[in-house]
């Protein structure tokens, strides 16, 4: 069944994705004590891949158009191509040197402007957060900019009678929320298994023309509102944690003693609060 909104147009879903270094591959350079980023393989930010899967599931059900949007260098094409190969219809990469160093405020602003430039959207999906910055601020930030209803931390999205229904993981339970369209949902990491690229999808990528590159000028983004200098926050410095990642402490003795030592350690680490 296809859902037609506002007359004859099929529903349009915009999925915002970021390309991130594969988390497992990240290593600290033993000499400089900084993170090695060069040569680290990239992937679609995993929660964004879950958001894309929800969009593609909705497309399967409702014949929606899925537009994938990203912001970053042209190396991000790799992830946009993958998204197309998975089944997205087209993609936009907002790419401009002046965007470099943007924190979540300009990022949410620039993506919002680009979403408006794409136009005609009914649903915006983002991952709950990125694995490289882990703020979770951009999705709600876009909703704030565009004054859209937002449902964060969702694992399931349904379109019912022209409204969005989403299952949200709250602190103490799961909630079903309903909003009008357009609205924005941020999607839980690991809530589904993103599909693999298909042969037809790969052929579409090979034929080309599936990624549009837009600059800030193309979109009408105010250069005074983006980039490092126009970001409210700066990273003043980074301290590398030199400790080995895992303590590797073994507790021995009889069950009573070893369990006591374990609980003491977990309480000291504030993992367990007595």
């Amino acid at each position: 069944m296809s859902v037609l909104v506002s007359g004859m147009r099929p529903m349009r879903i915009i999925v915002c994705i970021k390309q991130v270094p594969k988390a497992q591959e990240l290593q600290v350079d033993p000499v400089t004590q900084t993170l090695k980023r060069v040569g680290v393989p990239s992937e679609i930010n995993p929660p964004d891949a879950n958001a894309l899967e929800i969009a593609l599931t909705l497309k399967d059900r409702h014949a929606a158009e899925v537009v994938v949007l990203s912001m970053g260098p042209t190396s991000f094409d790799e992830s946009l191509e993958r998204a197309i190969a998975m089944g997205a219809d087209r993609s936009v990469l907002l790419t401009d040197r002046i965007l470099g160093g943007s924190d979540t405020v300009p990022t949410a602003y620039a993506l919002s402007e680009t979403i408006q430039k794409i136009g005609g959207y009914d649903l915006i999906l983002t991952g709950e957060e990125t694995t490289d910055a882990s703020t979770g601020h951009v999705g709600p930030g876009i909703a704030g900019h565009l004054a859209l209803p937002q449902i964060t931390y969702v694992s399931e999205v349904q379109i019912v009678d022209g409204t969005v229904r989403a299952r949200r993981t709250a602190e103490d339970g799961t909630e079903w929320w309903q909003t009008k369209m357009p609205s924005l949902c941020t999607v839980n990491f690991g809530c589904n298994k993103p599909r693999s690229p298909t042969l037809t999808g790969k052929i579409r990528v090979k034929r080309g023309g599936v990624i549009a590159h837009w600059s800030c000028a193309d979109v009408g983004i105010d250069p005074k509102k983006v980039g490092l200098f126009n970001s409210p926050t700066i990273v003043a410095k980074v301290d590398t944690i030199r400790l080995p990642p895992r303590a590797g402490r073994m507790f021995s003795g009889d069950a009573r003693e070893s369990v006591r030592a374990l609980l003491d350690a977990l309480i000291r680490d504030r993992v367990i609060v007595p």
Partner: peptide
């Protein structure tokens, strides 16, 4: 986080 993310974009300040 839902609130802070929305609010910092409205106020355009750091979070």
């Amino acid at each position: 986080r839902d609130l802070g993310g929305r609010l910092h974009a409205i106020l355009e300040t750091g979070l």
